[in-house]
C-alpha cells in the first residue's frame, strides 16, 4: 500500500484517492437521477387531475425550517471535516453528531409535511402531480435517511477506531454526499416550493 503523508489523511493511500474520485463520479450519476425527477416534475406539475395544485398545499413555514436545518447541517459537516484535518477527534465527532441531529430534525419535519399532504388529500395516488411531488421529495428524503445511518456508522467507527486513514476517508466521502443532498434540496426548495408558491 502506497502511503503519501504529504496529503490529508483521507487521500493518503492510493485506495483512498480512488474512492474519493469514484464517489464524485457517483455524484455525477446522482445529478442525472435528480435531473430525471425534475424533468418529470416540470412535465407533470400542472397535470393535477382532480387533486390539489402545489400552491394549494405548500406551506412556507415547515419548508423554511427544513431548508435552514439542512443548510446548517451542511455547514457543520464541513466544520467536521475541517476538525478532522487538524486532527481533532473530539470536535470531529461533535460536528458529526450535530450534523446527524440536524438531519434527523429535517426528516422529522419532512414526515410532518407528508402527513399534512395526506390530510389535505394529496396522496401518492391522487394525481400525476402529487405522485411526482411525493416521489421527488421522497427520493431526496430517502437519501437523507440513508445518509443518517451511514453517518451514524461512521461516527461509531471514529469513536472506536479513531481518525485513521479509513475512517478519515469514509468521513470525507460522507461529507461529499451530505453536501450534495443539500445542493439537491436547494433546487427542490427553489423550483418546487418557491416556484410553486410564486
Amino acid at each position: 500500500m502506497k502511503v503519501d503523508n504529504s496529503l490529508p489523511l483521507e487521500y493518503s493511500t492510493e485506495e483512498n484517492s480512488l474512492k474519493i474520485l469514484g464517489f464524485w463520479i457517483f455524484l455525477g450519476a446522482e445529478i442525472m437521477l435528480f435531473a430525471t425527477l425534475f424533468a418529470s416534475y416540470f412535465t407533470l406539475v400542472n397535470r393535477t387531475g382532480n387533486g390539489p395544485t402545489g400552491a394549494e398545499i405548500f406551506e412556507i413555514t415547515p419548508v423554511l425550517i427544513e431548508t435552514i436545518l439542512l443548510l446548517t447541517s451542511s455547514f457543520t459537516i464541513g466544520l467536521g471535516i475541517h476538525a478532522m484535518r487538524i486532527g481533532n477527534k473530539k470536535a470531529t465527532m461533535a460536528f458529526f453528531f450535530i450534523t446527524l441531529l440536524l438531519g434527523a430534525g429535517f426528516l422529522g419535519f419532512e414526515i410532518f409535511e407528508f402527513v399534512h399532504y395526506v390530510h389535505v388529500g394529496a396522496t401518492l395516488q391522487t394525481s400525476a402531480f402529487t405522485a411526482i411531488l411525493l416521489t421527488t421529495l421522497g427520493t431526496h428524503g430517502l437519501h437523507v435517511t440513508f445518509g443518517f445511518f451511514w453517518g451514524l456508522f461512521i461516527l461509531l467507527q471514529i469513536k472506536k477506531r479513531g481518525l485513521t486513514r479509513e475512517t478519515a476517508n469514509k468521513s470525507f466521502i460522507f461529507s461529499l454526499y451530505w453536501h450534495f443532498l443539500d445542493v439537491v434540496w436547494i433546487f427542490i426548495f427553489s423550483f418546487i416550493y418557491l416556484k410553486g408558491m410564486m
Binding site: 496529503l7 487521500y11 484517492s17 474519493i20 474520485l21 464524485w24 451542511s74 455547514f75 459537516i77 464541513g78 471535516i81 461529507s175 461529499l176 453536501h179 450534495f180 443539500d182 445542493v183 436547494i186
Partner: peptide, 13 residues
Amino acid sequence: QLVVFMHAGETND
C-alpha cells in the same frame, strides 16, 4: 457548496 465545502478543486483529480 461545490467549491467551499466540497473541496472539489484541491487535488490533481
